[in-house]
Amino acid sequence: MSRRRCSRCARPPSHCLCALVPRLSSRTRVLILQHPAEASHALNTARLAALALENGELRVGESFPELAAQPAHGIYRSCLLFPGAEAVPLAELAQDGRPLQLIVPDGTWRKARRILHLNPPLAALPRVVLPEGLQSRYRLRKAPMAGALSTLEAIVCALNILEGAGRFDAMLQPFEALIEGQIAAMGEAVYRRNHGGDQPG
């Protein structure tokens, strides 16, 4: 028998994060494409990001044929938040007058690349990247490379670049609570042993 979960944030009722999730408007449309393997993960930051954004949407799957028919919902210019040889710094688009649809693959690098492979129109979109030197607050996972962020952190950083520094920082509050809850559940000693925590959680 499966555990009860909140229908909104998908957390157990005793650890529901809904009260901490803001509801923010944005000029930028954020479309998160989540690999199915991530949907049931305990640390599902993409779901938190979608809940926090009035102009955000989360779709789960590997293939998204509808993107070829309506890649930008008319008024938006679509771009893919994903590294690549032709990727440009997101800050370069912040001065453009046309609103953006920021498409964000959610999954491990391998799963995200599979989503791009299965969706050629998506892979063909202009790519943008965040600034170098960013550091994740995601203390429960080792970053696969320097500057790697969780999906929620990447979205917050991107929106702050596009629409004003600090405007979307409130989205990090449930993220921090989620991490603290996971650390508390495993115990400080186990956290330090497995994740090398040198500072209090």
Rank of each mutant, 00 (worst) to 15 (best):
G164S: 11
R127W: 11
A87W: 08
F168L: 05
R127T: 07
P174D: 03
I32A: 03
V104F: 09
C18N: 11
A146N: 05
K142V: 11
A42Y: 00
M145D: 05
H15M: 06
Q70E: 15
G84L: 12
L43N: 02
L51E: 03
V88R: 15
R192L: 02
D106W: 06
I161Y: 06
G187A: 12
R114H: 11
H195Y: 15
I115C: 03
F175C: 01
H117Q: 15
G133T: 04
A85R: 14
A185F: 01
S136I: 11
H41I: 00
A87N: 11
A87M: 11
M171I: 05
Q70I: 00
S7L: 15
S78I: 02
R5H: 12
A177G: 06
S2F: 06
L125E: 02
P126N: 10
C157S: 13
N160K: 07
R47G: 04
E66W: 15
G201Y: 13
L43I: 01
Q173L: 12
A39K: 08
A91Y: 05
W109L: 02
S2M: 10
V60R: 12
G97C: 07
G74D: 07
G201V: 11
H117S: 14
L17D: 00
L178Q: 01
A170D: 09
V21D: 01
L81A: 10
S136Q: 12
R11E: 08
L43V: 02
A165Y: 02
Q199R: 15
R3H: 08
P174Y: 01
